[in-house]
Design a protein around this nucleic acid. Structure first.
Lengths: 153, 153
DNA sequence: CTAGAACCTGGAGCGCACTCCAAGTCAAAA
DNA sequence: TTTTGACTTGGAGTGCGCTCCAGGTTCTAG
């Protein structure tokens, strides 16, 4: 038995809930449930853990089955934000290592995220510029379509 | 030597200049020059051609060396716009096949580009939403930085 | 004429981010 | 208790978009 809601070690990172509440993981999610909750496949969840993206290894039931805490779910959700904005796995691993090391490296984490943000904005701008060029081509084809229509009637 | 600017067969696609002007490719570019002009490596230029991205095979000198026309360069430049906006090679090949087939399939090309545009905008939106979430995390770390500063003085 | 750079080809190799497989363990329902 | 399905692991496989290699031909400068 473990008391829930330990008010200690409340870090600024992810509000950590006790991973194993009650007997063998009550209040936690199986890997399939975590997959459903985050939109990431079970394969990928295991892969992410192997790749060092989880700050700390995910808690286990006595059966060795993974038990995802609410904090784990929030963390994975944040990982997906980094991923869909194009951060490479290696860099996510570096961020996870920093976050897993606890307080004291916030400046480094800030720098990492800020630099990522800069690259994302750069990329967004590049895509938008190229899309504008494609839009021009689209406009040309729309002209042709109008012309065809005139012929067809 | 040949006069520049043939006003004939001015299509709506890429204004085509004679690929082989004068003796064995005057007014055209070698693959290295084409690479410099487009920002695509010579390896990739050959790969693109193999992958069917060139509408028609690039013209050759008698030596079998490739000779890129101005139209080829514009085409490759447009290909890079499709690529940097995330179009897969397979789809670019399909577009190239349509463009290579000449007039009559403009509606299909328009549909392809329009659908691509839709997906790009969707993706841009997704990235922006996720970036906004990352921005919030950045703001948290900036708060911490300000707090640290207060401690340090 | 010759050296060295640039080009050619088919095919292999690479890095990334998954995705799946095999063989075994564990768990919830009949 | 037995079946069925979810879970475990290490490692292999996949798809994509290049990127490079080997072995040969061609071009260009001296």
């Amino acid at each position: 038995m473990v008391e829930p809601g330990d008010p200690l070690h409340a870090t600024c990172e992810e509000p950590v809930f006790d991973p194993l509440v009650g007997e063998d993981g009550a209040g936690t999610l199986t890997i399939a449930e975590a997959a459903a909750a985050t939109g990431v496949s079970t394969h990928t969840l295991r892969y992410y853990e192997r790749a060092g993206l989880m700050r700390d290894p995910v808690a286990r039931a006595t059966s060795q089955h993974r038990r995802y805490s609410a904090g784990d779910i929030r963390w994975v959700t944040f990982l997906t934000r980094l991923r869909t904005t194009g951060m490479p796995i290696r860099e996510m691993a570096r961020y996870a290592r920093l976050a897993g090391a606890g307080e004291g490296n916030e400046a480094e984490r800030l720098a990492l995220l800020t630099e990522h943000r800069r690259r994302v904005l750069e990329r967004l701008d590049e895509v938008q510029r190229n899309l504008a060029a494609i839009d021009k081509k689209i406009a040309v084809y729309q002209e042709i379509a109008v012309y065809q229509e005139r012929i067809d009637r």
